[in-house]
Nucleic acid binder design. Structure first.
Length: 261
DNA sequence: ATGCCTTTCCCAGAAAGA
C-alpha cells in the first residue's frame, strides 16, 4: 500500500498532472494541500473516475486541503478543535482535514507560512501548530495508527535548506518553528520518510524563481509524521523530484511512503 | 530592499506563497 502527500499549488491548474501521477505511481491515498478552490470548483469527478473517494475542505481561493482514497474514506473532519484563526476578526482557514482510510487516521496538513520572523503570521503559525499538536497527541495516547501528512513550512534541520546562510534571518528555520515541529516528535510522532531519503541536498520544495530547481536550491518542508503504530508499517519512502520538472509543475514534489499490507 | 515566478480573484494589479 502507498500513501502520499503533495502540495499541488492549485488543484485546477494541476489536475492533469495529478491524474497522470496517480495512474503512474499506483498510490492508494493522497493528501493534497493548496487546492485553492471551493467545493464548487474542485474537480471531484476527475478523481472519482479513477476510483478515488474524495474529502475536500476549501473555503475560498486560498489554502484548501483534501484527501483522496481508493481504500475507503470515513469520519471526515475539517480542521481540528480550537484551531486558531487569521485576520480581523479571526477566521479559521482551510488548512487541515482528517479522515479514516483503511483504519488509519490521516490528516492533510497545510501549516501557515509565517512569512517573516517578526510578522504576526509567525505567532499564528506557532499557535496553530500548538493546537494541532494537542489533537495529534491524543492519537498517540490512544495507540491509533495515524499520520500527519503535508506542507509544514518548516525546515527542521540545517541540511533541509540549500543554504543556512541564506535562510538564517528568514522564516522556516527559526528556533521557534523548529521547536514547534520537534514537539510532535517529542510526543511520539516519527518522520517516516527521512530514514529512507537521507540528506544533505534532499528537498521537497524549490522556489519558482531564479532557476532554483535547476540550481538545486530547495528546502525539505513536506513531511509525513506517523504514530508508532503507523511507523511500524513503513517499509520505504521516496520524494518524487521528477514531478517538479517541466512546464506546469507545482513548486512542491510529492512524498510517498510504502506500507506493509 | 526588491524582483525574480506562479496562482487566485477576473481583466488590473494586489495578495500570497516561502
Amino acid at each position: 500500500m502507498r500513501i502520499a502527500t503533495w502540495n499541488v499549488n492549485s488543484i485546477r491548474s494541476r489536475i492533469d498532472r495529478v491524474e497522470a501521477w496517480l495512474q503512474r505511481t499506483d498510490v492508494d491515498v493522497l493528501a493534497i494541500q493548496e487546492t485553492k478552490a471551493t467545493d464548487e470548483k474542485f474537480p471531484f469527478d476527475r478523481f472519482r473516475a479513477l476510483g478515488y473517494d474524495v474529502a475536500h475542505h476549501g473555503l475560498n481561493h486560498w489554502n484548501g486541503v483534501a484527501i483522496v482514497s481508493r481504500i475507503g474514506i470515513d469520519d471526515i473532519e475539517p480542521s481540528f478543535p480550537d484551531a486558531p484563526g487569521w485576520g480581523e476578526p479571526p477566521v479559521v482557514e482551510a488548512r487541515a482535514l482528517t479522515a479514516t482510510c483503511g483504519g488509519m487516521h490521516l490528516t492533510s496538513v497545510y501549516v501557515p507560512n509565517g512569512r517573516n520572523i517578526a510578522d504576526p503570521h509567525m505567532d499564528y503559525k506557532v499557535a496553530w501548530l500548538e493546537r494541532l499538536r494537542a489533537r495529534a497527541a491524543q492519537r498517540v495516547a490512544a495507540g491509533q495508527s495515524a499520520a500527519l501528512l503535508g506542507d509544514w513550512n518548516i525546515a527542521p534541520q540545517d541540511d533541509d535548506v540549500w543554504s543556512m546562510e541564506y535562510y538564517l534571518d528568514k522564516s522556516h528555520v527559526s528556533p521557534r518553528e523548529r521547536a514547534a515541529f520537534q514537539g510532535f516528535l517529542d510526543d511520539g510522532y516519527v518522520d517516516v520518510v527521512r530514514p529512507h531519503t537521507p540528506g544533505p541536498g534532499v528537498y521537497t520544495y524549490w522556489d519558482y524563481t531564479q532557476l532554483a530547481f535547476q540550481k538545486r536550491r530547495g528546502m525539505r518542508i513536506d513531511f509525513i509524521l506517523g504514530t508508532p503504530a503507523f511507523a511500524a508499517r513503513v517499509e520505504g519512502a521516496a520524494i518524487d523530484r521528477e514531478e517538479r520538472k517541466g512546464k506546469g509543475a507545482s513548486d512542491h514534489a510529492p512524498v510517498v511512503v510504502q506500507l506493509a499490507d
